[in-house]
Computed example of a mutant assay.
Amino acid sequence: MSDEVAALLTRRGWLDLDEPQLMERQFRAKYLLVTDDSDRIYWMATGNSLLFLPSSGMLRGCGLRALQPWQHFIPLKPDLSDALERVAWAKAHDEEARVIAAHGAALAREAFSHEAQLFCLLRVIQEVSAWLKD
């Protein structure tokens, strides 16, 4: 971000350069809820937080299929109706939840690495290339 934009956001109270950035603050959270079809899951998964992930099928992308429920994240219903129950489970099973979070973060750091994403892009290009030859 440019100095001009940072100054404007600071004047409006939307940015405090003395505070850790949002991503750093979110990594301090014990639990994180993935709620949208964006690239946020890629950085959220690399922290040490336990992810709660709805089984909506919306999330797609390189490496996401490697994440397995109850091994790398806590699954939720698409409407989040079981979210409170799942959080209660995580609180009651703190060590098990910590292990799930650690497994998820370890897998994410590998599956979502720069090299892994480039390999995935290569595979997509190869598949599209094969389609174009037909």
Rank of each mutant, 00 (worst) to 15 (best):
L67P: 05
P69N: 07
L51R: 00
G104M: 04
V87H: 02
A108M: 03
L59W: 01
A97E: 04
I41L: 14
K133N: 13
E127D: 14
R25G: 08
A130C: 05
R25Y: 02
A130I: 03
A90M: 12
T10H: 03
M58K: 00
L84V: 12
A92V: 01
A108C: 10
I125G: 14
L17V: 09
L107K: 09
T46F: 01
S56E: 00
I125K: 11
V128P: 06
R60F: 01
I41S: 03
L17I: 00
V124G: 10
L51K: 00
R11Y: 07
A108V: 08
D134A: 13
L84Y: 10
H103V: 10
P69M: 06
W43D: 11
M44R: 04
L80I: 05
I100T: 01
D39Q: 09
V128N: 07
S56A: 06
E127L: 08
A106K: 11
G47N: 05
R123I: 04
A6L: 13
R109A: 04
V128Q: 11
R60E: 01
S55E: 13
L132F: 01
L76E: 04
A106H: 10
P20K: 05
L9M: 07
H114Y: 14
A88W: 02
F119Y: 04
F73M: 07
S55P: 00
A130D: 06
L64C: 09
Q68R: 15
C120P: 07
R12Y: 03
R11F: 07
M58H: 00
H103M: 14
L33W: 01
F119G: 12
S55D: 11
W70N: 08
R109V: 01
E115M: 13
A6Q: 13
A108K: 01
R25L: 11
E127Y: 01
L80Q: 11
Q117E: 02
L22H: 08
A111S: 14
L22R: 08
W14I: 06
K30T: 12
C62T: 08
L118F: 11
L107S: 11
P78F: 00
E115F: 00
H93L: 05
M44C: 09
N48Y: 05
L22N: 11
L53N: 01
E110P: 03
M1V: 07
H114N: 14
A105V: 09
L8E: 11
G104E: 06
P75S: 01
L15N: 02
A97H: 03
G63N: 14
A29C: 15
L22E: 10
L8Q: 07
L32V: 06
L32T: 08
G47P: 09
R12S: 08
A130F: 02
L50D: 10
A6I: 02
Q21I: 04
V99A: 14
L107F: 06
A66Y: 10
Q71S: 10
Q126F: 07
Q117A: 04
F73G: 05
L132G: 00
S49C: 15
R109F: 02
S55W: 03
K133S: 14
L64K: 02
D79V: 04
T46Q: 15
M1N: 06
E19S: 13
D37E: 07
V124W: 12
R40F: 11
F27N: 12
E19H: 12
Q71N: 08
D134E: 15
I74N: 04
R40Q: 12
H103S: 15
L15G: 03
K91D: 15
